[in-house]
Computed example of a mutant assay.
Amino acid sequence: MAKKKKIGSYPNTMIIISLTAALFLIGFCGMLVVQSKKLVSIIRQNIEVRIFIDKETTEAGKDSILTNIQSRPYVQQIGDTASIQFVSKEEAAIEFMEGTKEDFTAFLGENPLRDSYRVKIQEDYFEESKLKEIKTDIEQIDNIYEVVYQENLADDINKNITKVYIILATFALIMLIIIILLINNTIKLAIYSQRFLIRSMQLVGATNGFIQRPFLVRGATQGIISAVFASIFLVILQQVAIRNVEGLAQLQEYNKLAFILLALLILGILIGVVSTTQSMIRYLRMSLDDLY
């Protein structure tokens, strides 16, 4: 005896594969956004303002500068300690020679560099206009020779990351629209093959809710299965990338990854249920002549 096919079971594999691919790409875009934000956050946390001190400044003067800087609201705090590093001119010379591989003191006869403080700035001040205000504010402190930071870095990063967010969001939206249309058509074909069964159930008095229930359950199940597969592929991709890309582990935020995976599950269920509902309403309202 031939095995009977279940209602709406024909395109199961096609629906699951299509929906899995769409959810995977949407989740991938979400991961890129999260990691981009983390990267920007790390850059912001490591941006430094270098404060060069007059050569004639005494130790008491240096301590006074340090006290003044520590009281500023824009200085990054690690616990209860301001993120300020004192770099002597000797240490600065060693760093310079390590970077250039040249001993400039040999032909100059002296070390022309200055003692300095390297100050890390709060993320909220990661804007070119605010950094300029910080520079102006610090230069008003006594015994300050010069305040230096990488100009235009903040605005360039902010502009570029905004472009990345827009591109990823647009791509994810386009993918979502395309896959909804594809899945809608696939589900319509599945239910089309069951249109006479649906009409038979109506003729024997079955309510619309009773007829729709197995189809909606199937749609939700397809969404769950697709979301699970997409989540597995995303996690595998993430782990492979972490093992092969140096420094990528620092960009991972597993709590946000869990949120993305949960969002994929909800999105998968919604797509399956909503697409099935739209298709069912059409056939439940169809006249007998239109069935043919």
Rank of each mutant, 00 (worst) to 15 (best):
K3R: 05
K3M: 12
S9P: 15
N12E: 01
I16D: 02
A21S: 12
M31P: 02
Q35G: 11
K37W: 07
N46T: 14
V49M: 05
E59N: 09
I65D: 04
I65H: 00
L66F: 10
I69Y: 10
P73H: 03
Q76F: 14
Q85L: 12
K101C: 05
D103E: 06
T105Y: 08
F107N: 06
L108T: 00
G109D: 00
L113Q: 00
D115M: 04
Q122H: 14
E123Y: 04
D124W: 08
D124S: 15
S129W: 07
K135A: 12
E139R: 09
N143S: 13
Q150Y: 13
T170F: 10
F171G: 08
I177R: 02
N185Q: 12
K188S: 09
K188W: 06
A190D: 10
I198K: 11
L203S: 15
V204G: 11
V204S: 09
G205I: 04
G209S: 04
F215V: 10
L216S: 04
T221C: 09
A227I: 03
S231T: 06
N255I: 07
K256H: 02
L257N: 12
L257E: 05
L257I: 08
F259H: 09
A263E: 02
A263K: 09
I266A: 14
I269R: 00
T277L: 15
D290P: 10
